[in-house]
Write a protein that binds this DNA or RNA. Structure first.
Lengths: 193, 193
DNA sequence: ATTATTTCTTGCCAAATGGCAAGAAGCTTT
DNA sequence: AAAGCTTCTTGCCATTTGGCAAGAAATAAT
């Protein structure tokens, strides 16, 4: 039940004393899942907010032809959730699936709401977490507009080399907005250089 | 100094009594800008959170070749801000420019922080605003992955027909992640059908 | 009213990406 | 070791999108 990684992560989002961070971490409970587990299913309401201490998770949905589209890849340490589903307590339209065995820490919606209410640092932390995620998504969006598939790929492999050791190229391709065939060709061209 | 539209908008984000919404609106001050005004400039820290009551604003940045890339188009009524710059009080890397004359209501960073602290409804409202924006961006991202440029265009014209009356096609094209040339051809094909 | 200026469209061709099917390579399972 | 499965690669060709330059149309400036 060692929460050191959670505590450390909380402090990277919002710097605060060890005591404070330790206090915030107290409400989190452990959940360990095996590879290929569905952490949150399409149509269900997100009831827990998860901190991913170790492992890889992806979120995905389906396009109109029924093909699976990877919307996000989560690499520890980070928080994993559909914030809209969680904060509005509405059904999500995504699936969250473990790509490896994972070690998670979770807190229920009610506990989060209660802590937001009673602990100013916790709500400040929550807001920064949201803002950080929003900013990351904006950067990804910008890449989709202005970068070629090859540039998106090389940027991604530079910033997240670990993901390539643990996630299939098909999933990465979909996350980058291209087909696995195209990604394979892009990789070939890069090797040639 | 009629804040009815602001009050109404606050209530669509988080339903609450007229009195409460009225109270939340009190701290906002009026700002009117002409077309082509820079509301927030690249390199500056966002000091104000803006509610756009009337008009159109876009955010943009530049790609590596110096071409201007529209990252977002804001159509009243909505809030306009770089949340990362605002909440972390860091320089933004985007420009926010009025595309028409605009009527804005703003609140300073200090006032927002103070109100988050003292008014529970205000922070709940702030969180929902963030979550809604995050969700919209996620939907847009999903469109970039799974839809063709033509589909993104037809979806956009259906959901935001008013924008086409007020914003040039070059800006819309950039927002959709294509060139103005391609958008022009897509429009021609649609007319043919 | 005339001249600039910007926006939008079009033609021609190039580059990027996708679809399909087959094969190769790497795993599991038995 | 063999069979089965999934992942990754490749060839062939189609489709989508872009780049450039020129012209048409719409707006703004004088």
């Amino acid at each position: 039940m060692n929460k050191d990684n959670l505590i450390k992560y909380i402090q990277t989002v919002l710097s605060m004393s060890n005591e404070k961070a330790n206090h915030l971490s107290e409400k989190f409970k452990l959940k360990e899942v095996l590879k290929n587990d569905l952490v949150l299913k399409d149509g269900k309401v997100s009831r827990q907010n998860y901190f991913l201490e170790a492992g890889y998770i992806r979120s995905f949905t389906f396009d109109t032809d029924g093909n699976d589209v990877t919307t996000n890849i989560f690499s520890a340490p980070c928080f994993v959730n559909d914030f809209l589903s969680f904060f509005k307590q509405r059904p999500t339209d995504e699936n969250f699936e473990s790509l490896t065995d994972c070690r998670l820490w979770y807190m229920s919606f009610e506990e989060v709401q209660e802590s937001f209410h009673s602990i100013p640092e916790f709500r400040e932390f929550g807001r920064l977490l949201l803002v950080n995620n929003y900013s990351l998504l904006k950067q990804r969006m910008l890449g989709m507009i202005k970068d070629t598939a090859e540039t998106r790929y090389t940027n991604f492999i530079e910033t997240h080399p670990d993901i390539f050791q643990n996630v299939s190229l098909k999933i990465i391709a979909s996350y980058l907005g291209i087909t696995d065939t195209s990604l394979s060709r892009i990789r070939r061209e890069i090797v040639k250089k």
